[in-house]
Design a protein around this nucleic acid. Sequence first.
DNA 1: AATTTTCTTAACCAATTGGTAAGTCGATAC
DNA 2: GTATCGACTTACCAATTGGTTAAGAAAATT
Lengths: 210, 210
Amino acid sequence: MTNNNKVKKTGNIRAKSQLKILTAATTEFVLQGYKGATVQSIADRAGLPKANILYYFKNKENIYHAVLEHTLEMWDEGIGDIDPSEGPKAAIEKFIDAKVRMSFNHPEASKIYAMEIIQGAQHLKEFARTYQRQWVREKAKLFQQWIDNGEMAAVDPVHLIFLIWSSTQHYADFETQILTIMNRAEYEQDDVEQVIAFLSQMILRGCGLA
Amino acid sequence: MTNNNKVKKTGNIRAKSQLKILTAATTEFVLQGYKGATVQSIADRAGLPKANILYYFKNKENIYHAVLEHTLEMWDEGIGDIDPSEGPKAAIEKFIDAKVRMSFNHPEASKIYAMEIIQGAQHLKEFARTYQRQWVREKAKLFQQWIDNGEMAAVDPVHLIFLIWSSTQHYADFETQILTIMNRAEYEQDDVEQVIAFLSQMILRGCGLA
DNA sequence: AATTTTCTTAACCAATTGGTAAGTCGATAC
DNA sequence: GTATCGACTTACCAATTGGTTAAGAAAATT
């Protein structure tokens, strides 16, 4: 009998350290950009010596890849699939809800993602070309059926998806600007609900669903 | 009489070179980030030797400041002030129109701006705190009056402004993603008009104005 | 207790990069 | 003709940074 008292001790330090590094790296990459974030700065933020970082990750690019993967997993989970049987109103509501909550809960993930796209999506082009394109087409088709059925107004489904993406992500990516303009130090609990209510109202009405 | 034949020869080269550098620098900063863009890469893109760059601009940060200023000027011009007397419908239409056209015509300006905000707006906090905050408050007040007058639906004016900003800028900042998903190499003439029509329709309806 | 594996660290290096010093060159002014 | 000034260039350096090596400390396994 091995590993009885302390369950899975091996790899425990490893997993812990890797997570610490990944978290620190995400923040550094957002704040300083890929080139601006140094291995040393990541190490400092993680509270580990620099050589230790390069013990767990082969090199800097490797860290960045790991951060991106982590981000994409979140995108995948948080996006909440649309259930066709629910009808357009519930579908859009659920979609907005999920995206807004993700923006408020994981702003750094959204920021990393946004910076990648802005800079030309060198590391994400494949993801967009395969996965996202497919996702958008499926969902657009669904919306189109609802439109053809007279269940919602005739709006361009693809642009509708872009609208939901942009308006929801904005609260993560432009956090700094929004807080400064509203003269606030940070978001509060209520803000999430308020944004969800506002965007749902606007977009549903825009789709002739309210 | 000096400078008769050739009008203002001195400073002509200067202005031309500076513009070339600024344009090249904007692209480099967008593509590589502040730290990632090297003076050499800016020089290469501008078609000038590196030392020449540092002859016209004291240092790298100086170039970046110049780029940001140039961007803010555009923001200022392109935003197109809202005329209270026109009523909410025309005002919102005009606002969306101006912002979308700016996104399609100067995507790099939008991108530089977006990256600054995402990374914490180190160089733009003052601008947001003074100028933008004031602008948003004025406009929000205007919308509120229209709402109180029953001229438009009761939607949160500040969030409405954020919605217009985010949905219009999206086409510049996320250009790469949008084109990839739509399986297109670049935007076409029609796209601008289509986006303007879509967003106007959606947002006006959301405001109970269509 | 011995041994093997994992983890941690200091010291170091090669390459890149921002920036400078010191000048050349050509045109205009005097 | 020569002094001046803006435009441009070469050669160089100090500092930073990504990454390696090699060796020791700690843990886990036997």
